[in-house]
Design a protein around this nucleic acid. Structure first.
Lengths: 209, 209, 209, 209
DNA sequence: AATGAATGAGTATTCATTCAT
DNA sequence: AATGAATGAATACTCATTCAT
C-alpha cells in the first residue's frame, strides 16, 4: 500500500516509459512503433524497457488500462454530492467530459484503443466493461432521475446516454485525426455548447406541446 | 490431376482481392495482415496480388478510396429533388446514413481509416476533404435552409452538422468494436430514432417560448 | 485465312531473342536481367522465350557460346594464306582483332563472360579452351615463325602471345566499362598503333645491339 | 550450457564482415551471394550484418572502395624519392604492381568491380577517377620524364601508360578467371619479365636507327 | 539496474517458370 | 506457335527479445 521508498525510482521509470510509449503509439500506431523508439524517447536503453514490461504488448496494455478510470471516479463523486436540476447536472457532466475531450493530451488513449481494437480483444473488453458500461450506467441513472422528476421526456435511457456522449467522441476523433487539416482551429467548445442546447432542449418535457 | 490451378479471370480479380483485403484488414488491422492472408482469402497465390496492386499499401489505399463516395452522391441526389419540410428532409438523410451505418458491411471502412490514420496521412486528407467536408457541407446547407425558413433555431451550422452525424458514428464504432460483447443485440434503430426525436425537437424553433 | 506467309520462322526468333538478351545482359548483367526484359526487347511474350530456350541460363549459354568462334576462324584463314614478313602478319592480326575490339558491338560478350564467370564455370572452360587457348596458339605459332626466321628476338612465346592481346583486352574493358565517363572519346586506334610500334620494335631482333 | 552465443566484439566485426563478403562475392558474384552466406562465413547472425552495414549494396561498396588506394599511394611515394634511370623506375613500378597482381588475394577486388560494373555505376566512377585516372596519371608523368630526358621515344603518353598496365590486368583476369583450368601453374613472373623486356626495348630511343 | 550488441523468426516483394487459352 | 495470367520459391531486411557485460 504505502509506496516503498526504494521502489520510488522504479515507479518513476515505469511512468516515464508509459509516457514515451503513449507519445510513440499515438503518433505511429502500435505496430509501427519500435521498442527502440519508446526507449529513445524515454532516454533509456532498449533493454531497460524489458526490466519494467514483459513485452511491447504489455506496455500497450498497461497504458490502455491505466489512468482512464480515475476521471470516471471523479465524475461519479461529482454526481453523488450533487443537489439541483437534473438538466444542470447533465450539463455539468457533459461539460466536464467535454473539457477532457477537447483539452487533455490523454485523448489519444481512446483513439489508440479504437485503432488497435482488432489486435487486443481483451483490451476492448476491458474498455467496454470498466469504462463504457460504467460511464453509460452513470449517465443513464442521471437521465432516469430527470425522467422520474418530470424534467425530461420519457425516452429510452440506453440510447439517450449514448447520444450524450456521441458529440464528445466526435471531438476526440476530430482532434486526434482530422484537426491537422483544419485551416483555422475548430471551436470545440462551441460544439459542446450547441450539443447541450439541442440536447437539453430536445429532452425537456416542458417544451413539448 | 489437380483441379485447375490456373483460372484465368482477369475480370474481377481486383474486386475480389479488395473484398478479401477488406475482410482481413478489418479483422486484424493493416500491419498485422499478411499479403498471404489476403491471397489465401481471395483464393489466389501470393504473387497474384501483385499483378493487381503494387504493394500492400496500394491495396489499402484502393480500398479506402473506393466505394464511399457513391453513397454520398446518392444522398446528394436525394436532397436535390426534395420538396417539403426541412425537418423531414433532415430525418430522411439521417435515416439513410443510419441505415448504412447499422446495416452495411462497408462500415468497416471508416473504422479501418480511423485505425490506420497515423500510418496514412494522405488517406486521412482524402477522407477529410472528399468525404467529411463534402458531407458536412451538405448537412450544413440543409440546416441553413431550415433556419432560413424559420423551422430551426439559429444555431451555428458547422456544429449542428457534426451533431447530426455524431450518433451515426457511434453506431459505426459500436458495431465494429464493442458489439462483440453485447449480450443481446443493441437496438441501433432505436438509437437513431431517439437521436431524431431529440435533434429535431431540440432544433425546432416553434417549441422555444 | 491461311497461315501468314510472312510469319517469322523459328530460327529467326531464336536469333532475335539472343540479340535482345545480349542487349539486356550487357546492360544489367545476367542476374539483374528479367526474362520479361528480354521478351519485351524481342517484342514477344514472356512465355515465348521458353519455346526456344529452356531457361534464362540456357539463353545466356547459347549467347556466350555462339558467334565468337567465327572470327577466330577468319583470322586463322587469313594467316594460312599469308606470305610475307612475320611482323606484318602480326600487325595485320592485331589490327584485325583491334578493329573488332574497338568497333563491334559484340565486345560485350567477353565483358559478359568475365562478369558472370563465377556463376558459369563450364562457360569459362568453354571460353578458355575453345577461344583463348586456340587464339593464343595461333599467335604463338606466328611468333615462333618470327623467331625462327630471325625477325624476332627469342622470348617465351606463351608470354608474348598474351602481351599481343593484352592491350586489346584493355580496349574491350575500357569501352564496356569506363568509356561512359570519358569527357572526350578515347582514341582506341591510337592505342593499337602505339601498341604495335612498341611491340614490333620491342620484339625486333635487329634493333638489339 | 551452449557456447557463448553473444560474443561482443564490436572491435573488428566490420572488418570480418568485409572479409567474409569479399570471399562470397568473389566466389559467386554480388547477386548470387545471400546476406546469410556472408553472415555464416563471418560466423555471426544474419541481422548482425545490418548493425554494421545498411544493405548488401553498402557492404559491396565499402569493400570496393577500401584498401585499393593505399597501394597506389605506396607507389606514389616510391616514385617521389626516386633518383636514376626512368627505365629503371618504370620497371620498378611495373614490377611492384605486378607483385600485387600475381600475389595478393585482393586482386579479386578489380575482378569484382568489373563483374558488377553494370549494377554500380557510381562505383565504376569511383574506380575510374580515384584509381585509374590517378594511376595512369602517375605512369604518364614517368613516361613523359623519360621522353624529356631523351631515354624514350616520343609516343603518346596516354596510350603508353595503358600499355604498361595492360599485361598486369591480364594477370589479374587470368588468375581470377582462367587459372582454375591451368594444368601447370602459369608463370606470371615470366610474363611480367617479358613485358618489361619488350616494353623497355620498344620504348627505348637509342635502339632506333 | 542498466546497457546495447547480437540474435533469428517473420514478411513484403520479386521473378523464373508453367500452362490454360 | 504464341500468349500472359498465375504460381510460389527465394531472399533482403526489420525488429522484438535476449543476455553478457
Amino acid at each position: 500500500m504505502a509506496a516503498k521508498r526504494w521502489q520510488r525510482r522504479k515507479e518513476d521509470r515505469s511512468g516515464e516509459i508509459l509516457e514515451a510509449a503513449l507519445f510513440c503509439f499515438s503518433k505511429k500506431g502500435f505496430a509501427a512503433t519500435r521498442m527502440e523508439d519508446i526507449a529513445r524517447r524515454a532516454k533509456i536503453a532498449k533493454g531497460t524497457v524489458y526490466l519494467y514490461f514483459d513485452s511491447k504488448e504489455a506496455v500497450f496494455k498497461a497504458l490502455a488500462r491505466g489512468s482512464m478510470g480515475a476521471r470516471l471516479e471523479a465524475v461519479q463523486a461529482l454526481i453523488a454530492q450533487y443537489q439541483g436540476d437534473t438538466a444542470d447536472l447533465l450539463a455539468l457532466v457533459i461539460t466536464n467530459i467535454g473539457e477532457f475531450a477537447r483539452g487533455s493530451d490523454r485523448v489519444i488513449l481512446p483513439r489508440l484503443m479504437l485503432a488497435e481494437a482488432g489486435n487486443f480483444p481483451d483490451l476492448v473488453k476491458f474498455w467496454r466493461l470498466e469504462l463504457l458500461d460504467r460511464g453509460l450506467g452513470i449517465l443513464q441513472s442521471i437521465i432516469r432521475r430527470g425522467v422520474e422528476s418530470g424534467e425530461f421526456r420519457d425516452l429510452p435511457t440506453e440510447h439517450v446516454a449514448r447520444l450524450c456522449i456521441a458529440p464528445l467522441m466526435i471531438v476526440v476523433i476530430w482532434r486526434t485525426t482530422f484537426a491537422q487539416f483544419d485551416k483555422e482551429p475548430y471551436d470545440y467548445q462551441g460544439l459542446v455548447a450547441a450539443h447541450l442546447q439541442i440536447l437539453l432542449h430536445g429532452l425537456s418535457a416542458g417544451s413539448d406541446a
